[in-house]
Design a protein around this nucleic acid. Structure first.
Lengths: 345, 345
DNA sequence: TTGAAAGCGATACCAC
DNA sequence: GTGGTATCGCTTTCAA
């Protein structure tokens, strides 16, 4: 069996209380005793039992992470960055995929509570904030990341979606594009991105918005392709796409190819997220990067600070997006703008 | 504070022993008492504390999962499938990314032991089996998945790499290819795949193996591209590539494009793994699929059976790979085979 | 500077 | 059928 504090005490000829104090460096113990105890700990290869410690009211050094889907690359990268920071700080992660299902989220939260996790990081994307409110009411440390931030007071790390959308539009406008189609799923963050997008149109001399058709039901390649095809088949097709995630952008690229057009020569495409996939496809994707590494780090720092009681107030951290220009965008071809101007004249 | 068994006992007017028996459905308790206790449990919203239970020698219903890198799509998908089956069986996963670093793996294992996990699932890919042996010697339930299986007796779920390599080669040979270049990182599973590949060459009339140049140092797109370019720049370039993972295959496709050749018309490419990325790139990748869903399910079933003591012996489960034909492969063009035959004549 | 003992929340043996 | 109590491994208060 694994040695316990009793084994150490007996072998060192002291009481368990003394051993406990040595391990935790509490109380006043003579250097001599300390040395003796540490030596025995080493020789027995004693390891503190976290379970027993937790039962006395201490922490479990385990945090519950609720995300929609671990096999989604964005969330996998996010989970990894949270895990890394957790590891540095001495915390493990119990990761739970909720599939955007509120029942599943509620069930996982119950279970994790029973396991005495020290806190919850919520990256789950659906808009039901009831569970969050309950958690906070019960004084659990909670931090939200990459998710719609509820109105009430809660730790959160998010990106400036408005700014990201604004940036995407500004860039495409600079390249000469006027007819820019939006591809997005109907979630809060995308609505913000679209709002930013529209503001950019306005700020650049009130460019008329390209007719918006419909939201996608999922953020994946087939939906991106489907919506893009709808646009391309319209009488007045766009010269650029702004997709609210990289997979949708890839779908758009496939649609463009299917219409025998080229990216970026005929049509430019901007994605969002900058998951590794953006560099894997051909052409490499121009995209608005979410600073995933920083998000993971910040959210872990936030929750650990709260767990340790170093922080009585809640914070909301807003990170900036960053435009990453690669090969899926280019300046609108002159002849097209000219012919357009002519037709306008 | 959360209600404890004491609160329930007091409110129900019984002893904690009785409450415990009701909850666990052990011992003999009258229906009347049971009803009363359950009612109180409901009204108090009492939840069993897993930590306290675990301290009495019970399970924590938490399993440690060690994988090389959660942000690698293959492992993310695998982790997700393990998590799903765990959820069905009532187990949570603590996921740890080891980055193929034995020190990190050892450190995580120590920590997870201190947290009394019920067992370990090891998907970490490096070839140091010392930690595994130690774990088994200490009677920890252990199961290995998607990893080189050590010689000693341990639960494992793996795929038939030899068969996968054989299948890839056979298929390309059927398509008329003779000059097939291999792109692979030097790990055990790939050596098996290459062995299968060579056997296929032999079985199909002793096709001469295309000169093998070198292993990649990482399994990613840039390395695939680099090695593929080396082959393409040689005096006698191959007509097909067999890459031992999808990212390497994508790198090969990029190299082929860079040489102004087309996939699959000029050169065919077969990947390995069938992560979602295979359907995302253009052309969609012909690849040898690992049955990730089944692997996750099987390995979880294996370890839970051992945790529950339903199984005294160890099992090794070998799953078959499956060829998924998509758009990156095609029959070798006639003119080329003809000219080749001529030059042979 | 050290140790005895109570307590954390639950299980299980053994009386009654 | 039910309950008292020792126990799991550790922390912490209080005496000594």
């Amino acid at each position: 069996m694994k040695p316990t504090i009793y084994d150490v005490a007996k072998k060192a000829g002291v009481s368990i209380a003394t051993v406990s104090k040595v391990i935790n460096n509490t109380g006043r113990i003579s250097e001599k005793t300390k040395n003796k105890v540490w030596k025995v700990i080493g020789s027995l290869n004693y390891q503190q039992n976290v379970i027993a410690t937790a039962l006395t009211g201490k922490h479990t050094y385990t945090i519950g992470l609720l995300i929609p889907d671990l096999s989604n690359l964005f969330f996998a990268e996010l989970a990894r960055s949270i895990e890394d920071r957790g590891n540095e700080l001495g915390y493990n992660l119990v990761i739970c995929s909720t599939d955007y299902n509120p029942d599943k989220e509620a069930k996982y939260i119950e279970l994790l509570k029973r396991k005495n996790v020290d806190g919850f990081i919520l990256a789950s994307g659906f808009e039901n904030t009831l569970e969050v409110e309950k958690l906070i009411a019960e004084k659990y440390p909670v931090a939200i990341v990459a998710r719609d931030v509820p109105a009430f007071n809660v730790n959160a790390v998010c990106i400036d979606d408005f700014q990201g959308g604004y940036d995407a539009a500004s860039y495409l406008i600079e390249l000469g594009h006027q007819k820019i189609a939006i591809i997005a799923r109907d979630v809060w963050s995308n609505r913000e991105r679209i709002r930013g997008f529209r503001k950019a149109l306005e700020d650049h001399g009130g460019i008329r918005e390209y007719a918006f058709s419909q939201f996608t039901l999922e953020s994946n390649v087939p939906w991106g392709k489907k919506i893009a095809l709808d646009y391309l088949n319209s009488p007045d097709p766009p010269t650029a796409f702004f997709a609210c995630n990289d997979l949708l952008a890839i779908g758009a690229i496939e649609a463009i190819r299917e219409k025998k057009l080229r990216v970026p020569e005929d049509i430019s495409v901007v994605g969002f997220d900058n998951t590794v996939i953006a560099t894997i496809i051909d052409p490499q994707l121009t995209t608005i990067a979410q600073p995933i590494q920083n998000m993971g780090r910040e959210v872990m720092d936030l929750i650990v600070a709260e767990i340790k009681g170093e922080k009585q107030y809640k914070s909301r951290i807003v990170l900036n997006t960053k435009r990453i220009v690669r090969d899926s965008t280019t300046r609108l071809k002159k002849e097209r703008s000219i012919s357009k101007q002519k037709s306008n004249a």
